[in-house]
Design a protein around this nucleic acid. Structure first.
Lengths: 265, 265
DNA sequence: CGCGTCGTTGATAAGGTTCAAGACGGGTGG
DNA sequence: CCACCCGTCTTGAACCTTATCAACGACGCG
């Protein structure tokens, strides 16, 4: 329907601002005010790019909230990430020159356009740019690795707990409160992201609420006991009794607090 | 114990060979025979790099089989990938300048060293290199996205089936048989990779064997019905009834073959 | 030859999904 | 302005996939 952007970008950013946004030490020898990147706005529900669409530009989130999704053979969505301020979009398009995922705005957004051609051309001149890109892509890779580890090894409760902590941290990094914030996504989307059903997500949030770890009021989440959330596990759920060093004594610890749902470091 | 490599690299490769190995169109204007990369050999069980170790070089697998793992707070391993010929290792170290994962040789291996410093220095001169790196990293990112989608949405049987197909494809790409090959990893490692227990992996393989999809003899796998394996799902297990377009008619298809364990395209 | 690792298979239980019903909230149209 | 509706969220109950626990067989190595 769309995927067409409403271009009238009044805003532009220079490289310094882009680096700051990405939390990458700029080391910019480029004083250029002539090196500017255009902004684009997307409204809630609009798609920034779709799967298979020809790749030509990367995006950096300046404000707003999005989701990126994969669509399976039945049209079901699998949420991959919830990008927000400072995150980069579109990197998965570099390889095949077609975006591998779809990015949808969950709120009104302001994105910075980084035309890939322009970027590589600039890299020819300024090495900082190249290293910046490597850093951002590597960071994204590490994030996805952590995600795989979480999906592969953690229980539903642990996943939801870590999701909340991670959100809190990101809000904190953006200067917002990490104690009280609004979820921009539905339970369904959270569930997809965490490999759970929306019912399980809902139930788990309710459970956390009853225990006093958080408060829940629809999309409004209050974090009451961040430490407990961080270390919550229950169910070291598989590939336990590994011979890996250090596994044993921790297992005893675990057994000690067995009837507890949570543990504090 | 090790993580110290047994350097006596007799072998060296030029950029052209590296590109071929990575399946990246070289477009090499660099005729250099003076631009050589050293090889290193690792024996079964040796670690190429460990978590937290200072990052300085990337590796390309020239021959042999490895695994990369994350270690959680209890010492449990979470397998992230099974790199083989043509795959790149160490990319996750770029961001923090420390490797985020551990790479272990599952067989005797021959790896090509790409000192990162050297690489970026070369990138200053030869643009092809830069684009090569972007391509490789983007490809890896896409691979991990697919992995997340799989862990988040597929049943145990579908995961094992896709794992086998993916292995078959990779063997084929390496010039080996895609119909008969040896697993280089244990059931435990497969289970960790797929987010399952080793028992479930074993049982699923046995089930596929009985149905005639594959033959199993310990580590030796024979692929009998690749198409069935590719399309096997059973249990679109969660986030089903999505309102996403196209979901409906496919759901009917699904119901039609409901008592069937497998479906052929 | 025995021990340890790896793999198979069975019985049991539990975590999480599925199905179902209802509540809440926001937007729309009468 | 209220009624209505639809998407979202919550909660309950039954079911099912997969983990857990356990025992045994097979292989490889010292």
């Amino acid at each position: 329907m769309e995927a067409g952007r409403q271009r009238q970008g009044r805003l532009w950013s220079n490289l310094k601002e882009v680096c700051d946004l990405l939390h990458i030490p700029a080391a910019v020898s480029i004083n250029s005010e002539e090196l500017l990147f255009q902004h684009v706005q997307f409204k809630t529900g609009q798609r920034v790019h779709t799967i298979g669409q020809a790749f030509d530009t990367l995006y950096i989130v300046n404000s707003g909230f999005l989701k990126t999704v994969l669509i399976d053979e039945f049209g079901n969505e699998q949420v991959l990430s919830f990008p927000m301020k400072g995150d980069m979009l579109g990197v998965d398009g570099i390889h095949t020159r077609h975006y591998a995922s779809e990015a949808v705005a969950l709120s009104d957004c302001d994105l910075i356009l980084l035309p890939f051609k322009k970027l590589t051309a600039l890299g020819r001149v300024h090495m900082e740019l190249e290293n910046l890109m490597y850093g951002v892509m590597s960071r994204e890779l590490v994030r996805e690795q952590a995600m795989i580890g979480m999906l592969g090894a953690l229980s539903a409760e642990a996943r939801v707990a870590r999701f909340l902590v991670s959100l809190a941290d990101r809000f904190a990094a953006m200067g917002y409160s990490s104690k009280l914030f609004n979820l921009r996504m539905t339970r369904h989307e959270i569930g997809s992201y965490l490999g759970l059903t929306l019912e399980t997500v809902s139930r788990t949030l309710s459970a956390f609420n009853e225990i006093g770890l958080i408060t829940v009021d629809q999309r409004t989440i209050g974090i009451k006991d961040p430490e407990a959330l961080k270390t919550l596990r229950r169910l070291p759920p598989s590939r336990s009794r590994t011979k890996a060093a250090g596994a044993k004594q921790k297992a005893e610890l675990d057994a000690a607090g067995d009837d507890q749902v949570l543990a504090t470091a």
